[in-house]
Nucleic acid binder design. Structure first.
Length: 426
RNA sequence: GCGAUUGUAGCUCAGUGGUAGAGCACUCGGUUGUGGUCCGGGCUGUCGUGGGUUCGAUCCCCAUCAGUCGCCCCA
């Protein structure tokens, strides 16, 4: 089923390693884990009026008329809306600022393409706090993401950061009414170029050249620090945005050059973002231009669920997109079809108990060990280990006088060893 | 949702108006307790589905389903 990915064991093994790495990185910054149901009530999913999201609705095959009285359920399409509901619902039991990570599948009923699935994992981190949320969190998120993603062997990444107050402030000052349409097209600047964007803004949005020129000028600004944001604010909102973006960038100066850049063409579709916004590109796969990790700050996400003002900031690794794309470009090796370190040979049926005991000893010492299932030809047993990518083959004694031996399949070298003392060479 | 394109063995693909091939994979063998290379044998298909044209279609036509790519939007 297209858009619902599944992997062979050797690829899944890598996927698990990636997920483990990301989880450990999130926890290293003190984010705690939550998991919410795959479904939410449709009212919750649609609370923000996001009717353009393609939501899968849940129905029982044997539905009766009574079911119509129950709340209708839909599969969640992101983890931000469920987080809002969760935070509101457990408000009294949570410690704020609430820093949580969440790694679950989400569903969107869109047409699948490379890096675009209908069922996919997102790895989200968000921080939510009542009333106001320190700006320092906006700077912490890219640092966490950099740690998480730079450990994945995906090549160089570039996180592009902006602040929506800057462009929206400008549009406001100039009296542009179609803010959504304008920002959406400015967002395409990197992809289709300056003149194409100007063309669309003229023909579709109806802006004048006098309006387009300053918009594009602003959108072209790129800088890694506050120093490069030499803009003259047209109003208070714009000034605030420039100051916030400068603060965030300056707090990320410890990251390698080129990994983070302020890029005022980034605005994201409208959604709920109100300040800082993030996008991330894979620099070593230039053919793939979409963002693999995006997010931003929202003023008040949970307001529809609780009578409190709950601002937050969050970012999400599009895990399946990332993995799918890297896999497509042959960057995921997958040379092991098994997690096992060692395969224990079964010499003959008389030695089955002894071989099993040997396997238990090795497992007890922390190794991953598979025992061959039948006393077949030794060549066949070794070939099985080789095909599964199990690096070591263990020969228990073939008779009372024999000894333990282990063979390194990569080198072909075989030596006499003892199950109580042998360790997997690193 | 819109536009384009494809659909032949497990995989990648040839091919012809007269009911199909290659490579890889898989399997067996090259003797007795040792893989990868090499050599030899073997296995596999309603030629996406339904209808039409035709003496006859996998090849032509129509429909349908599915995949892929682009747009929209996004992770």
């Amino acid at each position: 089923m297209s858009g619902f990915p599944e992997w062979l064991p050797e690829i899944r093994l890598v996927e698990l390693q990636w997920l483990d790495h990301i989880r450990k990185t999130f926890e290293s910054y003190g984010f705690c884990s939550i998991e919410t149901p795959s479904v939410e009530e449709l009212d919750v999913l649609l609370a923000k009026g996001e009717t353009d999201k393609e939501i899968y609705v849940l129905n029982r095959l044997q539905a009766t008329e009574d079911d119509a009285k129950e709340a209708r359920l839909g599969l969640h399409f992101d983890q931000t809306v469920p987080l809002a509901r969760y935070t509101a619902q457990h408000f009294n039991d949570l410690v704020f600022p609430f820093k949580r990570y969440q790694m679950q599948r989400v569903w969107r009923g869109e047409r699948p393409q490379l890096g675009r699935c209908r069922e996919f994992y997102q790895c989200d981190i968000d921080i939510i706090n009542p009333d106001s949320l320190p700006l320092s969190f906006d700077a912490e998120l890219p640092a966490v993401i950099f740690d998480a993603m730079s450990g994945l062997d995906i090549g160089r990444i570039k996180m592009k950061i902006s602040n929506r107050k800057i462009l929206i402030g400008l549009l406001d000052a100039m009296g542009v009414t179609d803010v959504i349409g304008t920002t959406r097209n400015v967002d395409k600047l990197d992809k289709i170029g300056e003149s194409a964007v100007a063309d669309i803004l003229t023909k579709e949005i109806g802006l004048t050249t006098a309006q387009i020129t300053p918009i594009l000028e602003l959108a072209m600004v790129k800088s890694a620090s506050s120093k490069g944001l030499s803009l003259t604010p047209k109003n208070a909102q714009m000034e605030e945005g420039i100051s916030e973006l400068g603060f965030v960038l300056d707090n990320l100066s410890h990251l390698p050059e080129g990994s983070v850049v302020g890029d005022l063409s980034i605005v994201r579709g409208l959604d709920y973002y109100t300040g800082t916004v993030y996008e991330t590109n894979l620099m070593d796969i230039p053919e793939f231009t979409s963002s693999v990790c995006s997010g931003g700050r929202y003023d008040d996400l949970a307001g529809t669920f609780i009578n409190r003002h709950l601002p937050g900031v969050g970012i999400s690794i599009g895990f399946t997109r990332l993995f799918d794309v890297l896999h497509h470009y042959g960057r995921i090796k997958g040379d092991k079809k098994s997690p096992a370190d060692v395969m224990v040979v079964l010499p003959n049926d008389d030695q089955r108990a002894a071989a099993a005991q040997t396997a238990r000893i090795l497992r007890g010492r922390g190794m991953k060990v598979e025992m061959y299932h039948a006393p077949q030809k030794i060549g066949k047993q070794i070939s099985y280990a080789e095909k599964k990518g199990i690096p070591f083959v263990w020969f228990p004694p073939f008779d009372a006088a024999g000894s333990h031996e282990v063979k390194n399949l990569a080198s072909g070298e075989q030596q006499t060893v003892h199950p109580e003392s042998w360790v997997v060479p690193s």
